[in-house]
Design a binder for these strands. Structure first.
Lengths: 349, 349
DNA sequence: TTGTAGGCGTTATCAA
DNA sequence: TTGATAACGCCTACAA
């Protein structure tokens, strides 16, 4: 692979000045069609490609991206944010500047006002983990009207003109869990589902996927109870304890959202962990210990790396190189994690 | 995030010339210790980071990396190669040039001669998927003596001075498979292992991991047969057919290497796929169909993206930014793939 | 319609 | 020991 031709070289080769070569290459202003032709011919012949470094160097304009994440307490969001920052750092020399704004609660109003502030400050693009609500929708519409490029990640906001969404297919995630748990159970028995919240669409999606697989693939498995823990480990503990006590034939537990710790504790204390299989989501405190002890059989993870990095890459490519995203939906992986493969997985600290 | 300070700015701030700042920053030649201290303090205070673009621009030298892969027939190697090329393309403006050299067979002699040719042509670095043999070891030693930087990926070559290795922990991969299959089998029953080849260390590692988990975690599971298919689907088919016929109590099959297609076909034809669980490796032709049909319950995958991209990134960072790899071993993920999550996985076309 | 000069941030070279 | 200047490849302004 030899060095690329440069503009000065093309100028010498065609006997004109670098200014003229520049005009020909970027079809600027008036230029003699014949000289232009000659120059373009030479450029083609020597396979001229512009040097992005020099371009960026002379550009010297900062590209501003704002990222709005869900509340930053969970390890998952922390890892996602770190990945986004790392992606931005790699492009810092190209003038990329990223600011991250975690919500303090799951509040659509707060999200909308954050969006508005960023847009009014003249931000070039936004990566948004959306709270799916009319207020957010309106804020996104405003951003787009003001010419900001918008990508959603982790959770989409429906009916908006965002360029694309990066995230896990939650219905599929529920399917994966259903398939796994039912097979662990020997394809028969009673299941207890510890739901997160009926209000949260992500949880509903997972549950639907889970149920659809149980229905279609495992006729001998029955879901005998579905309880909500509202992302609270105490509630998760109490409900699981109660169900295990009242239903001696339970042989599978699916935890839709948080609650790993509470449900795991109850299962452990019941002394039935070898006969009751448990599949959950996410990697939170105690998940590792329960995997090691055999309380939790598997946990389904999202990929924080990709969910943080890809939105930044997509927006940068668009703003810097004018490369449009090629897809409307960028699915991220659904990772099955067991006792033996959590080491080295990006989602497990 | 505001703009970075530049060398001229630091020069103005400290009242010296850019030349002096440069000397302080890169500890070059003679410089008054006090001025140096002053400059470094200012650099720290304003959080100076060199602009890699300008660096590259003035560098203006091509960094040549050669990559030697296993034979390029398999989809896995093709994806790995594509990822490496993509990683190199991103750095093309920094003067990176990558040449890929797939082996035509698993021949250590061929690999050694490829290495020697590249080194003699003055290559800066090599990424090698090693055939673990004395000949290769010698070639790698030669490369390192000639000052080429060497990283291995996918399969390591032991007892060499390569900087680091990128790849899956194969023993763990076997453990994951063992845990999964045994649980699918309801933690009891007879297992048939279809081995690849006793000659190939990667296969042996997986098998050892598999057996160790069966031994330690599942007392009621017995491995009743281990047969080699030598990566040949016909042999895989015949042996599986024969074992299934002669052993009516088999309820689990583990395929260590290729052979998914042959073993799957035999299992399907036996009509026992609902009572016999099957876990295999890789995503080759027919793996998808067998997953969908429920013949194969899960397949364990490597991550071709990371295995292709990371060696290039490591070598580039070393050669361009003098950043030493921080680890000796970069493990890549062990991905469990079922009927419901192969869509969107990097390893599944 | 075309040419020239200056600058982006860094490094290398020569002069002081 | 330090300072000034040219160069990398490109773009923008201004001059011719």
């Amino acid at each position: 692979m030899k060095k690329n031709v440069t503009i000065p070289e093309l100028a010498k080769l065609t006997g004109v000045s670098i200014g003229t070569v520049d005009r020909a290459l970027n079809n600027r202003s008036e230029i003699n069609p014949e000289t232009k032709k000659k120059i373009l011919a030479a450029a083609a012949k020597y396979n001229y490609r512009p040097n992005r470094l020099s371009k960026a160097l002379v550009h010297n304009r900062t590209i501003r991206i704002g990222m709005i994440t869900l509340p930053a307490k969970s390890p998952f969001i922390k890892k996602l944010t770190a990945a986004a920052v790392a992606a931005a750092d790699e492009k810092i020399d190209f003038g990329l500047s990223l600011s991250v704004h975690p919500l303090s609660t799951f509040d659509a109003q707060e999200e909308a006002s954050k969006i508005k502030t960023l847009v009014d400050s003249g931000i070039d693009a936004l990566a948004i983990a959306g709270v799916d609500s009319p207020v957010t929708k309106k804020a996104i519409a405003y951003a787009i009207k003001k010419n900001a490029k918008v990508v959603t990640f982790n959770s989409d906001v429906s009916d908006t003109e965002r360029l694309c969404v990066v995230g896990q297919n939650l219905h599929q995630s529920g399917q994966v869990a259903g398939d796994l748990l039912c097979k662990y159970m020997g394809e028969q028995g009673e299941v207890f589902v510890l739901h997160g919240s009926k209000q949260i669409s992500a949880h509903r999606e997972r549950l639907k996927g889970f149920c659809s697989v149980v229905d279609s693939d495992f006729p001998d498995i029955k879901i005998v109870a579905i309880e909500e823990d509202l992302d609270d480990d105490k509630i998760a503990y109490e409900k699981t304890k109660q169900i295990l006590a009242s239903r001696p034939n339970i042989s599978g537990i699916y935890v839709v959202a948080a609650g790993n710790k509470g449900a795991g504790k109850a299962l452990k204390e019941s002394g039935r962990s070898s006969s009751v299989k448990m599949v959950c989501n996410d990697f939170v405190p105690m998940t590792e210990e329960f995997l090691e002890e055999g309380i939790i059989d598997a946990t389904i993870l999202q990929d924080p790396e990709t969910q943080g990095r890809l939105p930044i890459d997509i927006l940068f490519n668009l703003l810097f190189d004018k490369i449009q995203p090629e897809k409307d939906y960028y699915p991220t992986t659904i990772d099955i994690i067991t006792k033996y493969n959590y080491h080295g997985h990006k989602g497990c600290q």
